[in-house]
Every structure is written in C-alpha cells, then in structure tokens.
C-alpha cells in the first residue's frame, strides 16, 4: 500500500499539481511539500506528492551502479 512512483511535474498552482508518467497525466495534491517547480520529479502516493525526488542523488546512485558495470 506504500506504493509510490516518481512523476514529472507539468504544472503547479498553489496546492494543485499536474504530473506525468509514461504519457499518463494525473492531478495531485502538493500540500505536503513546499516550493516544487515545473520539470522536477515528485514521488506520488494516493493522490499526493509526498516528496521531491532528488535528481542529484538519483544520478549518484546510478553512477555507482554504472561504475560496477564497467
């Protein structure tokens, strides 16, 4: 039940956001976060954005993996 996925922010208006994943768009409530900008990724759970996804950290984890691949 704690399933949540990273979705890209397309639009924000006060506490309302429009997010997208794989071409599917969905309205989410942004009231649990501050200062989210268009183009950022948020983790979405049960109709709410629950956290901003940190692209820097994501890239770091991926780069550790890529090194292992080499």
């Amino acid at each position: 039940m704690c399933l949540a996925v990273p979705m890209k922010v397309i639009r924000v208006e006060k506490d309302e956001g429009l997010v997208e994943l794989g071409g599917v768009r969905r309205k989410v409530n942004m009231g649990l976060l501050d200062d989210i900008k268009v183009g950022e990724y948020v983790i979405v759970h049960a109709g709410f954005a629950i956290q901003k996804m940190e692209e820097k950290e994501a890239e770091e984890t991926l780069s550790i993996f890529r090194e292992m691949e080499a």
Partner: peptide
C-alpha cells in the same frame, strides 16, 4: 534510497 529519503524526512508532512 537516497533519491527519495533524507535523514530528516519530510518535515512538513510529519508536522501535519
């Protein structure tokens, strides 16, 4: 899971 989890979590969500 550093791309989503910070040491202090989501403080706003916790306080709500």
């Amino acid at each position: 899971y550093a791309r989503s989890v910070k040491r202090e979590g989501n403080k706003k969500a916790v306080s709500i």
